[in-house]
Design a protein around this nucleic acid. Structure first.
Lengths: 342, 342
DNA sequence: CTGAAAGCGCTTACAG
DNA sequence: CTGAAAGCGCTTACAG
């Protein structure tokens, strides 16, 4: 038979006192006698009393649970972010409820509502590729629930944000290809909506412009799923052109690895005949042969920072629900990592 | 200013009826008049009423949240498992609270207690490398909270379990090396405690024995962290022996990739001079050059199955808390994937 | 020093 | 058809 979960009532009854006194005794209120405290604590220990977080959550109107909504989890960057979030939250006494959007706006919206109903204390999210804006998060604003966006953010949405300078990172990557002698550059970019895909594209264009290189629309490809096999397919197309590129900058390392695979199948020498730079500094970038040059994206730190901002906001509002909250956008450092592919 | 979260009370007051009626109306109880239902639903919609999951959880004594405790999350296999768990839970109306053990027994125990206090409806876990048993999960049994163990399980612990046949997988891997002509086999194994590390070691031994090959203790290395760099270091040691191995079976693909890296640095040709097989079928195994032969471990399906068993158990106990529960151990299929490294 | 009371937001058996 | 009451497990301002 299952044991009964000890409640304050059980302790109170056994000791012949009230629930009030038990509650206070356990929390060392000064107005409880030493003997009562002793007796209560002893019995609580004996019965293995564990307060019901849900009841406390209702009373305090605080769950000590934060929500996280991300597009996918089998993903080097996102799993690193989660790790950063979890380790920070653990240390601050918050638990983490995670949900996936699968990059779908409708599912993302559903998850936001579920999180709202569960009364999480705050939410951290990176937008689905399908989401052009974060408007479907506005229920959180209406009810003063803190939100931190990271990586795939909506610039117009008023909340804390954490990201890297994607435009600058892409600029570094592209300029590196140019410095290595590339004259005809291609970019396999991310989908239409995510801001970071646009910014990486912009950074690519910035570098071409600075160095007076032509931006050939035939050399721009747009991923839908941002997978290795998309990179592979687009690379095959690009490299079969009459006037193929001699350098390719890809929106992620996954896509870059696909490019390497395609080039190898076509017997192109990397880096001699084709140079490739990815983005994110995933593990596969170091493992692939030739190893892939890339832009570092500090997932763990992004997660940690997002969690820190979120918990700061939660606790500020707790202390003074009226004080206006100023939002920050924190931009973490990024840099180029040169490997065999360039 | 933040909006007020609509409660049943708000609706009741505005309509001049009781909370009871509002509650029933929203749930279409047959004993409420059609007009009342209409009015209530209309106002609920207008005020954007969202029931407080916590309050319902307390009443029903059911949170619709399941907990997951895993050793790490930046990990191909575990993130796939999580994905499987989440997609199944999503579809069944459960949310997922995740915590990490960082492979530490003490932290694992703390997480179990936290999950218990949060009153999750059930728990899915894979044991920390430090945990020789699942004894510290027994509080769950005492209070009849369903638990499903996967991958790193404790065979003695009475609960549902999901895994693959690690021993057989390791046997397949090793026999494949033998079939390819290896005479002197090494194994870089996982840590002491995890059952799957032991079983993979046993499977390795089974194959040697079947084919009358010597088991040289000098060719067995034990990982602590099971990382790429451990694989690299051990491979350097093994390959520097006077009588080095001609085939290495590694406990994971990460470790196998480290072996490949070391062998390449020592100018050994793979697979001509050294053959390598990993375990898990991670993405890096296909990306590394030469690509790594491996044993498939269906993470997504393991997660899905674990979630299914858990929710079945939760709902069985819900329906009849007295009925004795029979525990299953489900073993999913595994197979060898041959690539360039053998 | 201790306890009665109200309340967090719900649900449901029971009475009318 | 509707409502008063009790309860889930806690907390806390107030009275004594």
């Amino acid at each position: 038979m299952a044991q009964h979960r000890t409640t304050l009532k059980d302790i109170a009854e056994e000791l012949g006192i009230t629930v009030t006194s038990v509650s206070k005794a356990l929390k060392d209120y000064p107005d409880i006698s030493v003997e009562t405290k002793k007796a209560v604590k002893k019995l609580a220990k004996k019965l293995n009393y564990q307060p019901d977080s849900r009841a406390i959550a209702m009373k305090r109107n605080k769950s000590n649970i934060i929500g996280v909504i991300i597009p996918e989890i089998v993903h080097f960057f996102f799993s690193n972010v989660i790790q950063g979030i979890m380790s920070y939250c653990d240390q601050k006494g918050y638990q983490v409820l995670i949900a996936l959007s699968n990059n779908q706006k409708s599912l993302e919206k559903k998850q936001v509502n579920l999180m709202f109903n569960t009364r999480v204390d705050g939410l951290i999210a990176s937008l689905a590729n399908e989401s052009a804006t974060a408007k479907h998060f506005k229920i959180l604003k209406e009810y003063n629930i803190p939100l931190v966006l990271f990586d795939k953010i909506d610039e117009r949405f008023e909340c804390n944000k954490v990201k890297i300078d994607d435009r600058f990172g892409a600029f570094l990557a592209t300029e590196h290809l140019i410095a290595k002698g590339c004259k005809r550059l291609a970019h396999i970019r991310g989908p239409q909506h995510p801001l970071n895909a646009k910014e990486r594209y912009n950074g690519f264009c910035d570098a071409l412009k600075k160095h007076n290189l032509e931006l050939d629309p035939a050399l721009i490809k747009i991923c839908e799923k941002v997978t290795l096999s998309e990179g592979y397919d687009f690379a095959k197309e690009l490299l079969a052109l009459d006037n193929p590129p001699d350098g390719i900058f890809t929106v992620t390392d996954q896509v870059g690895v696909g490019v390497i695979k395609a080039a190898q199948e076509m017997n192109l020498k990397i880096p001699e005949q084709l140079k490739v730079v990815g983005f994110s500094d995933s593990q596969i970038a170091q493992v692939v042969k030739p190893s892939l040059s890339t832009i570092h994206q500090p997932g763990y730190e992004i997660g940690e920072t997002a969690a820190r901002l979120l918990i700061e906001e939660i606790e500020t509002r707790e202390a003074d629900s009226e004080s206006p909250v100023g939002f920050k956008q924190i931009t973490l450092d990024t840099y180029l990592i040169v490997r065999e592919s360039t």
